[in-house]
């Protein structure tokens, strides 16, 4: 039995300590917004935050989570009003949508660290998130748009 905190709620979970965080989130806790894409930290579909830092949850064992706080797409906002989510809808980013939770979590972590990222910083932060529908152009613009929205609020 391990205890992990996801989106501010503590969960007692029974799972092998080697179980990747992704499968604890999806199959044990039951939050399905975080997606499985590759299992080897190559596609970014499973991106969540550990104490605010983006990680590929498919490659983080439960034992490595400890007391760190996990944030998933479900924990960003209760009503899709996070600036990044608003920008995603405004620019009509998603196509199939499967990778977008991971894309959004990477973008949120970037903007938390760098409120006004350069193009190169966006490229670098988003390079680990694959989108097979090819929504990259809109993702890039939406990150910039979200940065603008966040600055306007700040």
């Amino acid at each position: 039995m391990a205890s992990i905190t996801i989106n501010g709620t503590s969960h007692d979970v029974t799972a092998d300590p080697a179980t990747p965080l992704l499968w604890v989130i999806r199959d044990v806790v039951g939050l399905t917004g975080t997606k499985y894409g590759c299992g080897i930290a190559q596609c970014g579909a499973c991106t969540v935050h550990l104490d605010g830092a983006p990680v590929r949850s498919c490659s983080v064992p439960l034992s490595a989570v400890g007391t760190k706080h996990v944030t998933t797409i479900e924990g960003l906002s209760v009503d899709s009003t996070h600036a990044v989510q608003q920008a995603w809808v405004e620019l009509q980013v998603p196509q199939c949508g499967y990778c977008q939770s991971g894309q959004i979590m990477s973008a949120v972590a970037l903007l938390d660290r760098k409120p006004s990222p350069t193009d190169a910083e966006i490229d670098s932060a988003m390079q680990g998130n694959i989108c097979r529908c090819g929504t990259y152009q809109r993702i890039h613009a939406a990150v910039q748009r979200a940065a603008e929205m966040k600055r306007a609020i700040a």
Binding site: I73, S80, Q92, P94, C96
Partner: peptide, 25 residues
Amino acid sequence: DKATTPRVDAKAKSNGTAVFTQDVK
């Protein structure tokens, strides 16, 4: 344009609630 008829699935695909086969339980 998109201001008049935005995608019906954009919001669900930006907040993790869109259901794929992988998510059926």
